[in-house]
């Protein structure tokens, strides 16, 4: 709960600050808080990935970009009343939506009783892997992971073709 509150405060800082360097550093802090939170939520694999990718790689990428461009943000010219109203309306609708969601930490929800329970029971006999996340990722949903590799490959091609220097 404390970490969730800290994340909200970090977000306020990101909204408020105009120095892009501080924004990038704050988003790195946000990612580390996120990794800690995922550790508390028992998602150890996701926490490792978030700490490496979210806090490491994306911070480096953003720092590279603000090295090439400017580090200060200019004042927006339009008034921010309409975006605030739209965001508050969407937030109200989303909060209305939470009344149908299960309370935190409950174990009798549909999520825990259908496919997840099957994965937990079958992982050892069918794949022999004790880490259920690994067995689902690499075995049961292997094609999903293959699609993910294709997405990353496409993005890499896009980045290379965008940043290639024209010789002509």
């Amino acid at each position: 709960m404390i970490i969730l509150t800290l994340m909200a405060i970090t977000t306020l800082g990101i909204i408020k600050l105009r120095n892009l360097f501080s924004v990038v550093v704050l988003s790195s802090i946000y990612s580390f808080l996120m990794a800690t939170l995922l550790l508390i939520f028992d998602a150890v694999d996701v926490a490792l990935t978030e700490a490496a990718v979210g806090a490491g790689v994306s911070t480096v990428l953003m720092l590279t970009v603000i090295y090439y461009t400017k580090t200060t943000e200019e004042e927006p010219k339009h008034s921010s009343i309409i975006p605030i109203m739209v965001c508050l309306a969407i937030g109200g609708l989303l909060i209305y939506g939470t009344y149908g969601l299960p309370p935190f930490g409950a174990s009798d929800t549909p999520l825990h009783n259908h496919v997840s329970a099957q994965y937990l029971q079958r992982s050892i006999p069918e794949t022999g892997v004790p880490n259920v996340v690994t067995s689902v990722l690499a075995s049961y949903r292997g094609f999903d992971t293959l699609g993910e590799v294709i997405v990353v490959f496409t993005a890499a091609i896009g980045v290379i073709s965008l940043l290639k220097k024209d010789n002509s």
């Binding site: 998602a43 990935t49 990428l61 999520l111 994965y119 990722l137 997405v151």
Partner: peptide, 23 residues
């Protein structure tokens, strides 16, 4: 045990997220 299923989905989402961010 906590449910492993969302963890798998989000592992995929993180990697796709960094790809779109890089682009």
């Amino acid at each position: 045990y906590s449910s492993p299923f969302p963890h798998v989905l989000i592992l995929t989402a993180i990697v796709v997220g960094i790809a779109t961010l890089a682009l």
